[in-house]
């Protein structure tokens, strides 16, 4: 296994698969709950975490996780009084991103790494990163497995869930924290600017093909894996950047799924 992990392409593929498996089901909740901009905000602010970690020479992943969680909680609690949630999200997303960029520019040699943090550097994934990604994915899978019905009910209608004895506020917090964990784990793979793409695109591609929430979640995971592997292949052949290539592959699958569904609908409509 260590021999196999020595190959950077194998590590890249495993990292992509791990992120996709986690982002698929979680992305469905992002789509269902209209949290796309929220995901973007956490991801953009994560860059501030990177900058701080490099500045104080701490671990990048713990720092990103800390900033992501803080931003997630700030949005969850600050919404509603003076600002609509998208205003607050905008403040934190752009504020975090800009602050991160400024701090990075002060660091000796910091600028060189910038595009890796913004767009990911999956080919530089180390075995330690793999452990973090798959650990996070396993944690996410366990959480979704046990909380699935409650999470669905809280997503369907918070009021109904509460009347039936659920705790929608707790479920919202769980999903928020899961999103922060995913951002921290996936930052190296797809980068701060494109993490949300791996949440939204596979889930959106799975939507027209699915008739149940479970099918959509599994479909999103499978489509995400295909996009990760397809993107790596594209990067290998065309020498394109790996992170954006994965998102392009996901976009292709999204168009394919929607085109196929349209065609099928038209066909059944004629017959």
């Amino acid at each position: 296994m260590t021999g196999l992990l020595d190959d950077f392409l194998v590590r890249a593929a495993l990292a992509g698969i791990g992120v996709a498996l986690m982002a698929g089901p979680l992305g469905c909740f992002v789509v269902w709950r209209r949290m796309a901009y929220f995901g973007d905000t956490v991801a953009h602010a994560a860059l501030l975490g990177v900058a701080l970690a490099l500045a104080i020479e701490a671990g990048v992943i713990p720092a990103v996780l800390a900033v992501s969680v803080l931003v997630a909680l700030a949005v969850a609690h600050g919404t509603g009084r003076l600002y609509a949630s998208d205003t607050l999200l905008g403040v934190l997303a752009h504020g975090g991103l800009a602050l991160g960029l400024v701090v990075l520019s002060f660091l000796p040699g910091g600028r060189g790494d910038l595009s890796a943090w913004l767009f990911g550097d999956i080919l530089a994934v180390a075995p330690g990163d793999l452990a973090v990604i798959w650990g996070a994915a396993a944690l996410g899978a366990i959480g979704l497995w046990f909380g699935w019905r409650q999470l669905l009910n809280s997503t369907l209608d918070e009021e109904l869930a509460r009347a039936e004895g659920g705790a929608p506020a707790r479920d919202r917090l769980i999903l928020t924290l899961a999103l922060a964990v995913l951002v921290a784990a996936a930052l190296k793979v797809v980068g701060a600017l494109l993490i949300t793409a791996m949440l939204i695109l596979p889930a959106a591609a799975a939507r027209p093909l699915a008739r149940s929430p479970e099918a959509m979640a599994l479909g999103a995971a499978v489509i995400g894996v295909l996009a990760a592997l397809g993107g790596l292949r594209l990067a290998w052949i065309a020498d394109s950047p790996a992170g954006p290539s994965m998102v392009v592959a996901a976009l292709m699958l999204f168009l394919l799924a929607n085109g196929a569904t349209r065609l099928a609908a038209r066909h059944s409509g004629r017959s």
Binding site: W32, R33, R149, L152, L156, D157, E159, L160, R211
Partner: peptide, 26 residues
């Protein structure tokens, strides 16, 4: 308690059959 809210705002982005919706109620 069996509750029906004034307006059930089902998110159309979630694929869900009527039977499954009922079963989610427990």
């Amino acid at each position: 308690i069996g509750y029906t809210p004034q307006r059930l705002a089902i998110e159309s982005t979630m694929p869900l059959t009527v039977t499954r919706f009922l079963e989610l109620g427990g």
